[in-house]
Nucleic acid binder design. Structure first.
Length: 442
RNA sequence: CGGGGCGUAGCGCAGCCUGGUAGCGCACCUGUUUUGGGAACAGGGGGUCGCAAGUUCGAAUCUUGCCGCCCCGACCA
């Protein structure tokens, strides 16, 4: 494996903040060379941003797989036919991007996939014995928002994980819902986020059981009201089938609503010192909607009684691309981004303070190779810039650890290790530095 | 979709009111000296002033239309 040298990488950092960006995550994503806007709400993912996006995607995937969800991939372009069958072709309105092909057939760029997957399901599944099913994909969506804003936080094109569950009856469907609920808590915890599930309105998708997961941030689009204890609850981890409902109940029994669903009278019953009013960013949304689509599309299976039963469904979304912005909102300072270790584009940055100095070059490459062997995936700043510029750039892109190697320290057998989150700097031997950083990623 | 604002070099901006053929900082290129928290000096490259029409001897500047982008509010992963 060749070294990932900054001199060979594509990292167009900006010293000045583009005028179009108003919130921290958008400003830093542009300045750190993560994305470039192509048109309103549509972004090019540059190498650094793409790397983070893929890491988040992978964590989402692992937590879906852990609860037994099965990955697949549906197309971005859909036929209007399924949508006409459910009546949503008209109901969805101008947010849907409608396209016609050369034969004047009506197509659309999918904003979601309930209609398509329900059609897929009904064409194969005949028996209750083939249930339950829990399928998901991670695919680009398009919603022609009235007002895209805040960079990738509200893009028109966005990457979403959407899962769909199919069960024989409401009770079984509730189990599927609970599993996703747990998976969401674990997913957001791994991403270094404190996400609170809030009772939600079901919106145009319909149904009667729904939760939004929000992370608290000043720049959030919704006002939220919740019991303080919810914010600091730790991730449930693996939950047995027997405990599933109880664990969900502990998270849903405490008051937590967005402004849409807020009831002041109910909130007043929360002890005053536990009442938290804040702003939040919605990063996930889960719905149970029973037979809404299966009925409309006649998706039924034969039950043990020999009769057809419309399958009970739920759908479960996570805004993967939005999370990139959300994580930055939750972790940054005035100098730039502070990545959680789980999604950082590179595990550590290696700063060579005197490129061309044989001893320094050799020390940097040696440290690179050892960190790499330890699975850290370092980024080597071998550019011929001045120290200050390198430090500022490294702070901006937010790698959790920086090792600085220069002739002065090397003469005494030491390098500098900086922890980005705290700003703490320590001098230590190269070996100690490698050991220190490796330990942080265990 | 209602209200507001902005389009001048890659980024940040000035020039526009009062028309005379485009400028500053950063970035970029070359050279020299530098190099441990965004170097200094010297030289240099880069712009159909968002697009179109109009007024005028002459338009970045005035008029009209269009396009694009951002912000504030009602909707959404």
């Amino acid at each position: 494996m060749p070294l990932m040298r900054l001199s060979n990488y594509f990292l167009p950092v900006l010293k000045e903040t583009p005028a179009d960006a108003t919130i921290a995550s958008h400003q830093f994503m542009l300045r750190a060379g993560m994305v470039k806007q192509d048109s309103a709400g549509i972004y090019i993912w540059l190498p650094l941003g793409f790397k983070v996006l893929k890491k988040i995607e992978q964590i989402v995937r692992e937590e879906q797989n852990r609860i037994g969800a099965v990955e697949m991939l549906m197309p971005t372009i859909q036929s209007a036919n399924h949508w006409k069958e459910t009546g949503r072709y008209d109901a969805y309105g101008p947010e849907m991007l409608r396209i016609t092909d050369r034969g004047d057939r009506e197509l659309l760029y999918g904003p979601t996939n309930e209609d398509m997957i329900t059609d897929m399901f009904r064409s194969y599944v005949r028996s209750y014995k083939d249930l339950p099913q829990n399928l998901y994909h991670i695919q680009w969506k398009f919603r022609d928002e009235r007002r895209p804003r805040f960079g990738v936080m509200r893009g028109r094109e966005f990457l979403m994980k959407d899962a769909y569950t199919f069960d024989i009856d409401p009770e079984a469907s509730r189990v599927a819902y609970n599993k996703q609920f747990i998976a969401y808590l674990n997913t957001f915890a791994r991403l270094g986020l404190k996400a609170v599930p809030m009772r939600a309105d079901t919106g145009p998708i319909g149904g009667d059981l729904s939760h939004e997961f929000l992370i608290l941030a000043e720049t959030g689009e919704s006002e939220v009201f919740c019991h303080k204890d919810l914010v600091d609850m730790s991730a449930p981890g693996v939950v047995s089938a027997a405990d599933l409902q109880d664990v969900v109940n502990t998270r849903t029994s405490l008051y937590a609503r967005t402004d849409e669903m807020h009831e002041a009278d109910e909130f007043a019953k929360v002890p005053e010192d536990k009442q938290l009013t804040a702003r939040g960013i919605e990063v996930g949304h889960i719905f149970y909607f029973g037979d809404k689509y299966s009925k409309a599309m006649n998706a039924s299976v034969q039950g043990p009684d020999g009769k057809p039963h419309n399958v009970m469904m739920g759908s479960y979304g996570i805004g993967v691309s939005r999370l990139v912005g959300g994580i930055i909102e939750a972790g940054h300072d005035e100098n730039g981004i502070i990545w959680p270790k789980s999604v950082t584009p590179f595990g550590a940055g290696i700063i060579n303070l005197k490129v061309g100095d044989e001893a320094v070059d050799a020390a940097c490459e040696d440290i690179y190779n050892q960190l790499s062997a330890a699975g850290i995936d370092p980024l080597y700043d071998d550019k011929n810039d001045r120290g200050g510029q390198k430090f500022a750039r490294m702070d901006l892109i937010g790698l959790p650890y920086q090792i600085t190697i220069g002739p002065r320290g090397l003469k005494n057998g030491v390098v500098d290790v900086k922890t980005r989150a705290t700003g703490e700097k320590q001098e230590m031997s190269p070996q100690a530095a490698i050991a220190f950083i490796s330990e942080q990623f265990v």
